[in-house]
Amino acid sequence: MPVHDMSYRAWEGKCRGPLRRWLAIPKFAFMEAVSRRLVIWLFTLGCVQLLLRLGYLYLLANQELLVAFRFPTDVLPPANAFFFKNFIDIQLPFCFALAFVLGADLIAGDMRHGALVLYVSKPISRWEYFFGKFFVLFSVFMLLTWAQAGFLFLVQWTIAAENTPWRLYFWNDRAPIFGSITAYCLVIAVCLTMLCLATSSLIRNARYFGTAMVVYIIGLLIIGRMLYAELGDINVRAVSPLSALVDLGYHQFDLAHRREMIDPGLIWISIAAHLTLCAVVFKWRLEKVVRHGR
């Protein structure tokens, strides 16, 4: 006599709404990411600069400590727009490193073993799949740049000396910096995420993912520099999205007077072209793989 009925029983519980279904994609991608030691290490390294800058801000706000150690206080640069832009620029290598590690398998892993068909055969639209994967990288890049720069900005504002008009001045003079931080980080995160998604959808082998990214980024940078050297027009450097991004930072933080810059209109065209190219490649690959099943 059977002690346990092992015949098929259908699930009869309730299913949740579309947002909860979509959340499963980034949730499991994050779970997979944090299970990798390299990701944790890189992310931790990406937080070291934040700690150093926090110490620096503390010293700026407590200059009597420096005076006690007879350290010249006038050599310390203030926490101005350049301070925050420089912080974000230094974070970029960590973003690229995490892009190589996390981005390589994000789409390619699904394509390599035919899992893409499983996603799109579930009640998940292709847009939801795209945004699920997009959200993973985008949020990691924003955590490394915007969240940390924003935290620094907040700390700088809150620890400013009480007995000086510094806090008010800072807020009045520097409030637009937060907008610049947000805009600059958003553009960086979106551009880098789109590049990762497109490259990952195009190249199934993780080894060649990094090579392809480097060839695209550095290749266009070199072409831009060569054209600039040949034609002498700074605007031709806009062919490189990286050059365009760097110059965008200077424009965003109102530091464009520091050196010769690409025209802002061309910067936005360059970024838009980069995003369009990535979107077209991603869509083309997705359609192709879904249609043929692998």
Partner: peptide, 20 residues
């Protein structure tokens, strides 16, 4: 989307997520 809620699809070829 409603159809895919009702359907369970077993693909012909290899389909899994590696590492899980």
């Amino acid at each position: 989307k409603r159809i895919r809620e009702l359907i369970g699809y077993m693909p012909e070829h290899e389909s899994y997520l590696a590492g899980m």
